[in-house]
Design a protein around this nucleic acid. Sequence first.
DNA 1: CGCTTGCTTGGAGTGCACTCCAGCGTTCTA
DNA 2: TAGAACGCTGGAGTGCACTCCAAGCAAGCG
Lengths: 154, 154
Amino acid sequence: METLAEAAENGTDVCSVPPERHPRPDGQDSYTISEVVAFTGLTAHTLRWYERIGLMPHIDRSHTGQRRYCNADLDWLDLVGKLRLTGMPVADMVRYAELVRAGDHTYAERYDLLEATRRDVLARIAELKDTLAVLNRKIDFYADAGRAPASERR
Amino acid sequence: METLAEAAENGTDVCSVPPERHPRPDGQDSYTISEVVAFTGLTAHTLRWYERIGLMPHIDRSHTGQRRYCNADLDWLDLVGKLRLTGMPVADMVRYAELVRAGDHTYAERYDLLEATRRDVLARIAELKDTLAVLNRKIDFYADAGRAPASERR
DNA sequence: CGCTTGCTTGGAGTGCACTCCAGCGTTCTA
DNA sequence: TAGAACGCTGGAGTGCACTCCAAGCAAGCG
């Protein structure tokens, strides 16, 4: 169990919110890159690329230099995956990662960034619902038209 | 007022569902590319590119060869805009445009395409709601942490 | 021990959706 | 009627997010 300050120091995210289960319990959590590929659905290329651009905390290495991911890294990748499908640019996620690495004094900035993201997500959901309505009406139209001979507008 | 068959023939979409108002009434609907830019928020480059790749029906031209868009074109661009923000690839939208141009006998295929899109949209909304929940918990965490001294995990 | 499979690196390549450019013709305003 | 602003084309360029490559080291197995 690590303190908040420790978590901030070693670059992992402080609040690993979801109480989801990890493949291996804390303490025995050491995953090769291909295991992480299997868990996340990302490619090894992408995982290495995330690291190069600064989107990942420092990843442990084996004595021969191979990457060994831990549970906190898996949690981080989970968050990144969620943010990615909101349409958030990778550069913004890197910004957030930098704030996490920088330590506790960046809480306010992290809050602002997440709050802005939240607004974006809310707006996107609204847009999608709007699109859904249009789609539903068109689908109804084609369903009706397939049943009756094409003769009426709407 | 055009019949369904006419609409299908001239390549516009048969069911222009939303009863939204156009800048000019049918009959006087003739817009330059820059007017369409103003209405849609797209760039002129993008409008010409959409035409080149087959995403637009045939656009009228003035006697000197300049584009003159009509209300139906605006409706089509509105639909394209909505589909675009669902994340649908442009190639799929081109496919739908081809089906519309091909005529009435493609109703079943259009239905299938829209139905598949609908499922995608529903799935994306669910994903976004999931992300929103994570975001909300993190935001709450940082809001609390900003108030109290950083000392407790969560 | 040899073989296969996996992991390493920097750098180059890919696909998508635009985005811009040069060089020219057209239309509008004073 | 001059000048600015707008529109035309084919083709090249851009930015993003990966995606792949070559060459070499490392690990597990019969």
